[in-house]
Design a protein around this nucleic acid. Structure first.
Length: 570
RNA sequence: GCACCCGUAGCUCAACUGGAUAGAGCGCUUCCCUCCGAAGGAAGAGGUUGUGAGUUCGACCCUCGCCGGGUGCACCA
């Protein structure tokens, strides 16, 4: 049990004995180190509901509080804060426990859930572009964290492998295909076909009609068109896989839109039969008269021409997942413009009797330098592959300059870790709901709050250990012993790791983990400046080595939970 | 028109059930490598948290109005 939760349980006991609801006994790290290490606002919260004087209440709580083995006598300050200053011995014990714990003080959730996380979802025959970054990186990180805390996670890439674009692709494939180009760069060639057919259609109604015909044939199961479609999907997926491999991202499932094709018609029929849906203006809709916000916003599940929609597929997907996994929760990691869509789908799902906890993990848009949204269909998007390559190239230039002693292949490996980490971190460090201004310079800057800064903190610590080994420094099996203020600060920061991860998952916000890791690296640097490690001796040296070692582990594991790797040298 | 999101230092962003003196990075000024890695550290300047009320011991956070920006709103995904 962490120091913080230990204090919390003691406080809860004291509150109970004082006749106050123990549930309000929350302990948080002190807002300001001058007041101590931890604080609780419980007395002020209780005073509010009981209409009592908060300071008096705090004082009476102290009478019941037994924490003398953990900290100095707690004090009441300000409006009724209860402040805790942890004993050096208790702090040392706590950080030693983390050091000897394979989980680094992270406790699993009490009740593991089955969570399906739906993210990335690129469209076949189109390149992945910057617009896919957030979903992909955010979804991956949340999956890692949820798993790390003990949840049963199923990641599903719901790719856009079915749609009207295939009429054009198939027509182009039959009449304009360049096999060499397709072999060399499949998606580029598919995009070229799409664009050329699009241009042809505009001036030639006959071609337009033929293209429509190809789409209808595909939908009716025409063998030749189905084969072309399969190849287009396979080739596109192969390219996506390269990117996912580069990004170190894997999926448990890849059930795209096409997987649910056969389920759509029966689903709509069933919803009509059960009077969950009804016809309106020729289309089939689900209405929500009892939900004020959706009163005027029906969910369309079949067009008047008989075609199905986005929502239809989503409902079929929801039903399939419910049946197969009986998940406790489904998280949809997609942009905030789709909020209304998900409100409708979730409401429709509830009408269908689905009780799963459905959450739209929304995120802000990606903006260009002009602060305007990067449009998906403008055709001028920055391709993800090119972006990652450029990040790696730029990192390589820096590594070559900073560390010419590394071999060429080592430099390339390090550049890959740094470049990809920089891109991921630049995205994850921001609050997911705010719009994201895309900037090469910012992404690839190696100063300040960036992945390279954190990676560098790790590398420095590794370097200390290498040096110790090279010089034959004797490391005593001594425990960590905290006394200096810089040591205290570092130990306290290390102890926050577990709480931070739970907070991240609570609101699906990896930026809190980024903030934590940045503060950890920052705290370590202060320690590094103030407390000589190799130049100290005996038990102190061993203690500081161990403290640095725990720090490096938390950095490595923490970055790993963001999908970011660490090099040993850089 | 309606709904949702956002407005914090010059710029990009944080701020943990409402809590103590609103914090970082970039940029700017000045220092620190015969020194465990300077991709680092120390110090400084920079704020009426869009605005006006309200709620209370206390508001960036909650409520209402207003201003400004973004997104979405019946047959695209």
């Amino acid at each position: 049990m962490s120091l913080q939760s230990l204090l919390e349980s003691r406080l809860a006991t004291a509150l109970g004995n004082a006749g106050i609801d123990p549930a309000i006994g929350i302990v948080t790290p002190a807002a300001n180190a001058q007041f101590g290490d931890f604080q609780s606002n419980a007395a002020m919260v209780a005073a509010k509901s009981q209409k009592k004087n908060p300071r008096e209440l705090a004082t009476s709580i102290l009478n019941y509080l037994q924490v003398e083995d953990l900290c100095e006598p707690p004090t009441v300050a300000g409006a009724g804060f209860i402040n805790f200053k942890v004993l050096d011995s208790a702090l040392s014990d706590a950080v030693n426990r983390v050091r000897n714990d394979a989980c680094l003080g992270v406790t699993p959730v009490p009740h593991a859930k089955t969570i399906i996380i739906d993210f990335s979802s690129p469209n076949v025959a189109k390149p992945m572009h910057v617009g896919h970054i957030r979903s992909t990186i955010l979804g991956d990180s949340l999956s890692r964290i949820a798993r790390h805390l003990g949840h049963h996670v199923i990641t599903d890439n719901h790719i856009g492998d079915w749609g009207t674009q295939f009429g054009k692709v198939i027509y182009g494939w039959k009449h304009l295909l360049n096999r060499d180009a397709l072999y060399k760069s499949p998606i580029d060639e598919l995009v070229r076909l799409y664009r050329e057919v699009n241009a042809l259609e505009e001036h030639d109604p006959v071609i337009k009609e033929t293209v429509r015909g190809e789409l209808v044939k595909l939908q009716q199961g025409d063998v030749e068109n189905l084969e072309i479609w399969k190849q287009a999907v396979a080739l596109s997926w192969k390219e996506f896989e390269h990117l996912y491999a580069l990004l170190d991202i894997t999926f448990d499932e890849r059930l795209g839109e096409s997987f649910y094709n056969d389920a759509l018609e029966p689903l709509v029929d069933r919803l009509l039969a059960h009077e969950i849906a009804r016809e309106s203006e020729g289309a089939v809709c689900i209405f929500f008269p009892d939900i004020p916000a959706l009163q005027e916003k029906p969910c369309l599940i079949r067009k008047s021409d008989g075609g199905f929609l986005y929502a239809t597929t989503d409902l079929a997907t929801l039903e399939y997942r419910e049946k197969r996994w009986k998940a406790d929760a489904v998280w949809y990691v997609t942009g905030s413009p789709q909020q209304l869509h998900f409100e409708q789908v979730f409401a429709a799902g509830r009408k269908m009797g689905i009780e799963t906890d459905l959450r739209h993990i929304a995120f802000g848009s990606i903006l260009g330098d002009d602060r305007k949204m990067m449009k998906t269909r403008s055709g001028e998007n920055v391709e993800l592959g090119g972006l990652l390559r450029e990040a790696i190239e730029r990192s390589l230039a820096v590594v070559e300059e900073k560390n010419p002693d590394l071999s060429k292949s080592q430099q390339e490996e390090v550049a890959r870790i740094i470049g990809l980490g920089a891109v991921k971190y630049a995205d994850l460090m921001q609050h997911r709901l705010t719009d994201y201004v895309f900037s090469w310079d910012k992404m690839l800057s190696f100063q300040g709050n960036t992945a390279p800064y954190l990676q560098n903190a790790y590398v420095r610590i590794r370097s200390i250990f290498r040096k110790a080994e090279a010089e034959g420094v004797e490391i005593l099996p001594a425990p960590i012993s905290i006394s200096e203020s810089a040591e205290r600060a570092l130990a306290l920061q290390i102890l926050k790791f577990g709480e931070t991860l739970h907070a991240v998952l609570e609101d699906q916000r990896p930026n809190l983990l980024c903030l934590y890791l940045y503060e950890l690296a920052d705290t370590f640097h202060h320690f590094y400046e103030a407390c000589p490690i190799l130049k100290s001796e005996g038990g102190i040296r061993s203690s500081r080595m161990a403290l640095a070692g725990v720090t490096s582990q938390v950095l490595k594991i923490g970055l790993g939970l963001l999908g970011i790797g660490v090099p040993e040298r850089m």
